[in-house]
Amino acid sequence: MNKSKITVGVDIGGTNTVFGFIKENGNYLFSNSIPTQAHEDVHTFITRLAHEIKNSFKQYADNYILTGIGIAAPSANNFQGTIDTPSNIKWGKVNFVTLIKKYFQIPIAITNDANAAALGEYEFGLGKGLKNFIVITLGTGLGSGIIISGNLLYSEGGLAGEFGHTIVKPNGRLCNCHRRGCLETYASANGICRTVLDLIARYNEPSELQNIPFTQMTGEIINDLALKGDHIAVKAFQYTGKILGKALANLATSFVPEAIILFGGLSGSGELLLKPTRFHFEKNLLNIHKGKVKIFKSSIENGMAAVLGASSLVNKKINNHVMGININNNIEKNN
């Protein structure tokens, strides 16, 4: 019997790592997640991940063959196969592809998590049919994947699009990148938790959030309380949307995309975040672009955009095809 081909897409986040078995048509056969444990040694993490993938694949081995692994990770360099000192994971710089090849002797590709999400949206989500759009990932941190003329934007070193580390508040909150005022310290799952602490200190309004230790606070908890009308939780989303909307207006001025797609845990809050973000985006957008750039929440279910994109990336590698633009050398490889 001929076995069907599948690839593994892996999305490494600061809190959780999601992986899935993806069919050739882009449908996923299976998905699961493990805690990333960001302070854990990278070798221990890779051992855990490989073990989970191999164990999960056993039930499909009679009918499917695993042809490649695509990995999405913060600060990943698709040219070098490395993850380079991610802000929210304490690995330093590691050659991730070399390390995981000790467990799998099949093609492996890696890219920045936001780039993978952009590729996933381009092929399977709201980006289908668009040539110019930006994906913003709102997880533990904040990332961006930029599609220009139907191609992913890279740089000479492969690390273009670190939008989360643009400074929006000079001398503001300390970031894990060791600078102050980065966008992701305000507009991310961690950022909104820090905003809640600031608001609790500033206002005397009663809030259930006052009883939750910071180490136990999550974006989901803040979301649930905001839906119940908790004033501090509502204010936290309003402030986050204001910061994010202004920053996106600046980004749109540079790239003038057709759309900006929000992806990741915090985007799951829907209109709680989208409404203030859209308002402040439009308010601060250059006049000639007003009303022309739309902001959407990703439509790909279960937050699988980066997993699908990572799977697509390794398929392109298997087929000896690369999608990207090198902005320094102006090298374009079309799909």
Rank of each mutant, 00 (worst) to 15 (best):
I148L: 07
V256F: 14
F30D: 05
L119C: 04
S254C: 12
A116N: 10
F279R: 15
I71N: 00
S188G: 02
M323K: 11
I53Q: 03
I46A: 12
L313P: 04
H43S: 09
G161K: 00
L183N: 02
H321S: 15
L126N: 08
K333P: 02
G150I: 04
D84M: 10
G172D: 07
D198N: 14
L313C: 09
C193M: 07
F79P: 03
S155N: 06
G181D: 03
N55G: 15
L29E: 04
L29C: 05
Q80C: 13
S269R: 03
G120S: 10
N132T: 04
I12P: 00
A160G: 09
F104H: 01
N328I: 08
K294C: 15
E40V: 08
E271Q: 15
L244M: 08
I318L: 15
N63W: 13
G265R: 02
H289Q: 12
L126E: 04
I106D: 08
C193Y: 03
V314Q: 08
K3F: 07
N287L: 13
M323Q: 12
I65F: 08
K101Y: 13
E258I: 06
T137H: 04
E24Q: 08
G145R: 00
S31N: 13
L99M: 13
K54P: 15
L266E: 01
Q210I: 07
F133Q: 00
Q105K: 15
G303Y: 03
V10K: 02
K90M: 06
I260R: 02
N302D: 14
I46E: 07
K23W: 08
K58N: 10
Y28F: 04
A187Y: 03
Y186Q: 01
S254A: 15
Y64A: 02
K5A: 12
V234F: 05
G68V: 04
V307W: 01
L152T: 02
E258C: 11
N115A: 13
T82W: 01
C193A: 08
D198G: 06
E271A: 15
L66Q: 07
E52C: 07
L119Y: 02
K246C: 09
G264W: 00
K290N: 09
I12Q: 05
M304G: 12
G291I: 05
R180W: 06
V322N: 02
F79W: 05
A226Y: 01
V42T: 09
K131R: 11
F96N: 10
D62E: 14
I69F: 06
S312Y: 11
K246A: 10
S56Q: 11
K283N: 09
L138I: 03
A189W: 00
L273Y: 01
S87L: 05
L199T: 04
Y239C: 15
A305P: 01
I221M: 05
L308D: 06
N16C: 11
V18T: 14
F57Q: 07
A116T: 04
F30P: 00
N223F: 07
T111I: 11
E332W: 13
H280D: 15
H289T: 12
L152I: 02
G129Q: 05
G245L: 01
M1I: 14
G229H: 09
C193P: 02
A226I: 03
G309R: 00
I325K: 08
I108Q: 04
S31E: 08
L152E: 00
K235E: 15
H165R: 06
F163E: 01
F57E: 09
F214D: 05
R194H: 12
E220I: 13
S149R: 14
K235V: 09
K101A: 14
F96W: 07
Q80A: 14
A116P: 05
Y154R: 06
G229A: 09
